[in-house]
Design a protein around this nucleic acid. Structure first.
Length: 917
DNA sequence: TATCCGACATGTG
DNA sequence: CACATGTCGGATA
């Protein structure tokens, strides 16, 4: 169960009549306990409580219900019960159906409220459902409740108004929801004159059978789109002309495009009306615009509905972008200014001209957080200047965004408006906040559209850097000078966000076309992640000033994407000025986005100091290369053949068989038992998993001459016909092998021995897993192979030097090593000073490594190379191997991996004739 | 003809 | 149910 589901269950429970005996079980059920667990508790079998009517679930909670008025005593009894501690309960809970008290025994946090109110505190108990409560989730109890209710209303409305769910009307539906949210917020924050005005009006004016609910709401919306003033003075003629009824006339003029246009309202069923009123009765003051936005987005998005957990970690992650991008700078300036009035004033003026632009803004988290952070700094300036209540100089319209989806764009606008109001309340007080709030500014600074197709300069003119904009054709079309305003003269622009990551082969036709707009001349844009478009577009943009930083999938800084993406950016005279190392986007909630992210900040190459951040620390470096490591920028491209004097490495043999050429040990046994003549058609096969974990797997390996025999064996014939069918219906590639369904797509084998390297392997090991196989063992496409090469080649693959190189320049699977012949083997530089004697020495080292492993037979590679358990003799063999190899490079062992990598890049540059950028 | 990738996929303790 | 760690075959050059 996710937090939303739990909230719903808890809310339902709170509305039921209180049943003393049943409540503890119902409570536990609401947190996702299974029927069998509850049964055991009910029967007493697993109930560890020593209190009458108490229920104690081991390692979780001790619950007691009691007579009315006895909650204090009951809680005391729970706290003092020796069983509570013995069963390691995390919580105690007591209730009489009127009062409710609970305590988190680990943190000492307590709840004391009425029974009806306890769902408002459900966040405290989330550990009961195995949800590790990050701090934010606890603080966003309200947002979860609100989201959950809105979701119910949304679904209910679409059920009654199917036409609103169609593509054409979805935007209207979304706009309607945004208007509702605004009204709920406004009625709870005195923006509307009278507590709960909106909800109350609907409740009173619409019939209980709900038949005219939509008309009532529509009239309220129309009122909010009708001015009440003329030339600054109250003037009733607008509303008279609009026919605003007296009961709707109490609503203020809001404008800001929120209520303009179509004021259609979907029809409400009785249930929908009840939901609406229920939602209105929540306290919307507590809304958290930074995370609420992304949660509420889930309301309208079928795919995202279960993905709430994703967003709890987003605030710290967003600050990982914003702080190094510009907020740290502002704070440093604030510190530097101390109490110097003139400096403080300059800083405030500077901040008033800062534009934050998120070209993939979603529901606006980056913008909202940037805004709130800046307001905090500004407030401090104003306090120091003795001007605490001063109106903010930071215009909301300087926080601009682009969003493809309609609803999030709508929410982003709203979230910013709410953030502004809340900041005004905090820093200037309720009265001032209200005075300036309405009507809303009518400018629309969140654009709904495709960021890769829109002209960013027009949507967010950078101005500022003193560079006058030229109407050149940098962006394909000449700029329309009239579109460029200079109100931001002298300002700064910071581009930020978390654009979508879509791997090359997951992109739609349209998305590929979006990327093609970046092709220069004849050169096509190839296999890059969709996010590359944002990097390129931002890079072109900041030629006019500014900096940018995005959260990204780490794969744009790995392997083949590096030479495709980064030269364009460096070619614009820019450099990476900060980077955040790999981090998981979020790890603690179920159904989480599973992706390893990085953050990359880019600015003009001349501009500034450079830092590499990790979760724990930051490190100042002289340069950050596109692999996000310190050191010179050397970009390694694929090589079709080795640059050193080594053997040829092939990818393994591709079955393209949907598993039909492959046999488990059992399948192989069964086949050979029944059809002994099949034996010569069977060979062992290794891929990464088989090699690393010592697994046995077999394959059908059938030559043209053996085809007839193969077809004569029924189970094999059946497999072959499945393969034929599969290849027929598959890609063009597969159809090439239609006539030979008994063969792998590629059939390369060795005669003497085969050096095997897994294609993917864990990053925890200190050496790449690799080894030697007899010639009858086949290598699958999940490993790579060098056939019949001198053994010193194995010494190279097994070396620390090679691991460091592969780790630096090859692609990765998240953070796993991903071996590649073209990226890792063919590019690996070996000095020409490698003599015959050197090769003989290395051969000896390779043999010693193999012997060291054999001494531990039958331990697998995974066991032998577990960094915590690596046997001494094996470690020594590797150290010896490293020493012999490294002497060939620099006459001694390298001091560390940094030194190794520097030397390798230097040698690579020399051998390939490339220049370091 | 051969490769490289996955807002991943899947087993395990 | 969280963590460790590598399948599989499409798409594209």
């Amino acid at each position: 169960m996710n937090a939303v589901e739990i909230e719903q269950a808890i809310s339902e429970l709170a509305e039921l009549p209180f049943d003393r005996a049943e409540f503890p079980f119902a409570f536990l059920e609401a947190f996702g306990n299974k029927a069998t667990t509850l049964k055991k508790l009910r029967s007493g079998a697993s109930n560890a409580s020593d209190l009458l009517g108490g229920v104690l679930q081991r390692s979780n909670i001790h619950i007691a219900t009691c007579d009315v008025g006895a909650v204090d005593q009951a809680l005391k009894a729970l706290r003092e019960s020796p069983k509570t501690a013995a069963a390691k309960a995390k919580f105690i809970l007591a209730t009489d159906g009127e009062d409710f008290q609970a305590e988190d025994l680990n943190t000492g946090e307590t709840v004391a409220c009425t029974f009806a109110d306890f769902p408002n505190h459900f966040g405290l108990f989330l550990p009961l459902a195995g949800i590790t409560t990050v701090k934010q989730i606890r603080e966003s109890t309200f947002d979860i409740r609100a989201t959950s209710r809105l979701n119910k209303l949304y679904v209910e409305l679409l059920k009654d108004n199917p036409e609103w769910a169609t593509a054409e009307r979805r935007a209207d539906m979304n706009h309607f929801m945004a208007r509702l949210i605004f009204c709920f917020f406004a009625e709870d924050t005195d923006i509307f004159n009278g507590e709960g005005l909106f909800t109350r009006t609907i409740e009173q004016m619409s019939a209980r059978d709900s038949s005219n609910t939509h008309e009532v709401i529509s009239q309220i919306f129309q009122a909010m789109d009708t001015p009440t003033r003329h030339e600054g003075k109250l003037d009733e003629r607008y509303r008279k002309a609009a026919g605003t009824p007296r009961w709707a006339d109490v609503f203020p003029y809001v404008n800001g495009q929120l209520f303009s246009g179509n004021t259609d309202v979907p029809r409400f069923s009785r249930i929908a009306r009840a939901y609406l009123i229920q939602i209105g009765n929540l306290n919307w003051k507590k809304i958290n615009p930074d995370i609420f936005g992304s949660m509420i987005q889930a309301v309208a998005d079928d795919e995202e509905r279960g993905a709430l957990g994703m967003h709890y970690t987003s605030v710290p992650n967003i600050l990982k972008v914003l702080n190094p991008l510009f907020l740290d700078d502002l704070r440093a300036a604030l510190e530097d200014a101390a109490d110097n009035g003139r400096k403080l004033l300059n800083l405030r003026n500077r901040m008033a001209h800062i534009r934050v632009f998120d070209p993939a803004c979603g529901s606006g988290n980056f913008l909202v957080i940037a805004y709130k952070q800046m307001r905090e700094i500004e407030a401090e300036i104003n306090v120091r200047r003795g001007d605490a209540n001063r109106k903010s100089a930071i215009p909301l319209t300087n926080f601009r965004g682009i969003e493809l989806r309609d609803f999030p764009a709508e929410i982003a606008r709203l979230a910013l408006i709410i953030a502004e109001f809340q900041c005004d309340v905090i820093y200037r007080g309720q009265k001032e906040a209200l005075a300036d709030f309405l009507p809303l500014d009518s400018q629309n600074w969140i654009t709904n559209g495709n960021a890769l197709r829109l002209d960013w300069l027009a949507l967010c003119p950078p101005a500022g850097s003193g560079v006058r904009m030229q109407a050149d054709d940098l962006f394909g079309t000449p700029l329309d000078q009239s579109e460029i305003d200079f109100e931001n003269e002298g300002g700064e622009t910071y581009i930020c966000g978390n654009p979508p990551y879509i791997g090359d082969k997951y992109q739609t036709k349209e998305q590929k076309d979006d990327l093609r707009t970046f092709k220069s001349g004849k050169q096509e844009v190839r296999a890059v992640d969709y996010i590359a478009g944002w990097f390129w577009k931002a890079s072109d943009y900041i030629r006019h000033g500014g900096r940018f930083a995005f959260v990204s999938t780490n794969s744009i800084c790995q392997g083949v994407q590096v030479p495709l993406i980064w030269p364009k950016i460096f070619g614009n005279g820019q450099a990476i000025f900060f980077a955040h190392e790999n981090f998981m986007w979020g790890n603690n909630a179920a159904r989480n986005a599973q992706v390893t992210c990085i953050i990359v900040g880019v600015a003009d190459a001349q501009e500034r100091r450079k830092f590499i951040y990790s979760d724990a620390a930051r490190k100042e470096v002289a340069n950050i290369n596109p692999y996000l490591s310190p050191g010179d920028t050397v970009i390694v491209a694929r090589a079709s053949e080795p640059i050193s004097e080594v053997g040829v490495m092939f990818g393994g043999n591709i079955p393209r068989d949907q598993g039909n050429l492959l046999l488990s040990t059992d399948e192989m046994q069964a086949l050979v038992n029944e059809y002994p003549q099949s034996k010569p058609l069977i060979r062992p096969i290794v891929g990464s998993a088989e090699f690393i974990n010592g697994l046995r797997r077999y394959c059908l390996w059938i030559s043209d001459e053996q085809a007839e025999l193969a077809f004569s064996i029924p189970p094999i014939a059946e497999r072959l016909s499945k393969i034929r069918e599969y290849r027929l219906n598959g890609s063009e590639r597969g159809r090439a092998g239609l006539d030979t369904p008994y063969k792998f797509e590629r059939t390369i084998i060795g005669n003497r021995h085969t050096i095997v390297v897994p294609s993917v392997s864990s990053e925890r090991r200190e050496y790449l897993p690799c080894g030697l196989m007899p010639p009858d063992v086949r290598v699958s496409n999940l490993a790579l192979a060098i056939y019949d090469a001198p053994l010193w080649n194995l010494s190279v693959v097994a070396s620390r030097l090679h691991l460091v190189w592969v780790g630096a320049v090859c692609g990765k699977l998240e953070t796993r090593y991903r071996y590649s012949n073209t990226m890792g083997w063919n590019t690996f530089p070996i000095p020409t000073t490698l003599t015959e004697q050197g090769k003989a020495d290395l051969t000896r080292c390779a043999e010693d490594i193999l012997l060291a492993r054999e001494a531990h037979f039958p331990k697998t590679i995974a066991e032998l190379y577990d960094p915590a358990k690596m046997p001494d003799n094996l470690r020594h063999a590797h150290e010896r191997n490293d020493e012999v190899l490294e002497r060939i490079y620099i006459g001694r062992k390298f001091r560390n991996d940094t030194e190794r990598l520097e030397k390798l890049f230097e040698l690579y540059t020399k051998m390939t004739g490339k220049k370091a950028a």
